[in-house]
Design a protein around this nucleic acid. Structure first.
Lengths: 149, 149
DNA sequence: ACACAATCATTGCATACGCAATTAATCAGC
DNA sequence: GCTGATTAATTGCGTATGCAATGATTGTGT
C-alpha cells in the first residue's frame, strides 16, 4: 500500500472516529436531557444558541446553522418550542422577510436548569471517551478549540 | 469566571465544534454519495463495514454499532439493502437467534464505485475545514487516530 | 416605475429514525 | 429435562427530518 492509499485510509478512519464519538455523545445527551429536562439535543442547542446571544435575537437562518438543520426543520423546531412557550417569534421591522426568535423567561429558566446537566453529561462522556485509545486523540483536540472569532 | 467555569465552557465549545464538523462532512457526503452512487451515508457505512470484514459476515448488532444505529433502524436498513440486492441475510447455524449479513457481488461493485467518491469528498471537505480556525484543531487530530486494536 | 431575479421562511410529501412491545432462540438453575 | 431469565432481531407507532415547491418580501437593472 502506497503513501496515497495510506492517506485515504487515515482520512476514512478519522471520519469513522469522529462519527463514533459524535454518536456516543449525542445519544447520551439525548437520553439524559430528555429524561431530566424534556429537551432533545437540537432543542437544547437552540436554547443555548439564543442564550449565548445574551438577550438578543436570532434569525431563523442563524438558528439553522447553529443547529445544523435544514430551513424546514428549523421552522418546525421553532414552532414546537414556541408552542411550549420557551421562545417567541418576532417580526423584525427592517426586513419583513426575516423572523427573529428570542427566549422567553420560561425558556431561559429551562435552559438554566438544563445547562448544568448538559455539562455533567459532557464531562462524563468525554472522560469515558478519553480512556478509549481510538477516541482519545480527538477528545484531547477538543480542549484546544479556539473561541469563535 | 473561575477555572471550573472555563472547563465547562471549553467542553461545550469543543462539543459544538465536533458537532459542526460532523454535520459539515455528513451533509456533503449525503449529497454527493446520493447523487453519484444512490447511497446514503449510513448505507455506505454498512457496505464499508462489511467490506472491511474482508468477505466475512457480520451480525446485526455489530452492524448497528458500526453505523451508530438502533436495532430497529438496522433491521430496516439491512432490509432496504437486501431488497436492492446489495447484501444477503444469512442464518448462521451456531446461534439461530443471530443473523449474519454479507455483501453480494453487486454490493461489492457498488461499494468499489462509491469508495473513491467517498474519499474525494472527505479530502475536499477536510481540506476546507482545515482552513477554518475553529475547526482546524479537530481536523488535524483526526490524522493521528490510531488503528483499531 | 416596473419587471425579474434573489432571499427568507413556510408547507406537502415521503422517508428514516428511536422507543417499547413482541417473537424466537439460547442459557442458567435446579 | 424443564421453567424462567436473557439475548437477538423484528414490528407497531409516533415523530423529526430533508427536498422540492410555494408565498412573501426585498433588491436590481433598465
Amino acid at each position: 500500500m502506497g503513501i496515497a492509499d495510506d492517506a485515504v485510509e487515515i482520512r476514512a478512519r478519522g471520519w469513522r472516529t469522529l462519527a463514533a464519538l459524535h454518536a456516543l455523545i449525542e445519544t447520551e445527551l439525548e437520553r439524559e436531557l430528555g429524561a431530566t429536562a424534556g429537551l432533545s439535543v437540537v432543542e437544547y442547542t437552540v436554547l443555548d444558541a439564543l442564550n449565548r446571544q445574551d438577550g438578543w435575537h436570532m434569525r431563523m437562518q442563524q438558528l439553522a446553522r447553529a443547529a445544523a438543520l435544514s430551513p424546514s426543520a428549523t421552522t418546525r423546531l421553532v414552532t414546537r418550542l414556541e408552542d411550549r412557550g420557551l421562545l417567541t417569534r418576532v417580526l423584525c421591522a427592517d426586513d419583513r422577510r426575516g423572523i427573529y426568535t428570542e427566549l422567553t423567561p420560561a425558556g431561559l429558566d429551562l435552559y438554566e436548569k438544563a445547562h448544568p446537566i448538559h455539562d455533567e453529561i459532557l464531562e462524563r462522556v468525554l472522560g469515558e471517551a478519553a480512556d478509549r485509545p481510538e477516541l482519545a486523540p480527538v477528545v484531547h483536540a477538543l480542549q484546544g478549540v479556539e473561541a469563535v472569532a
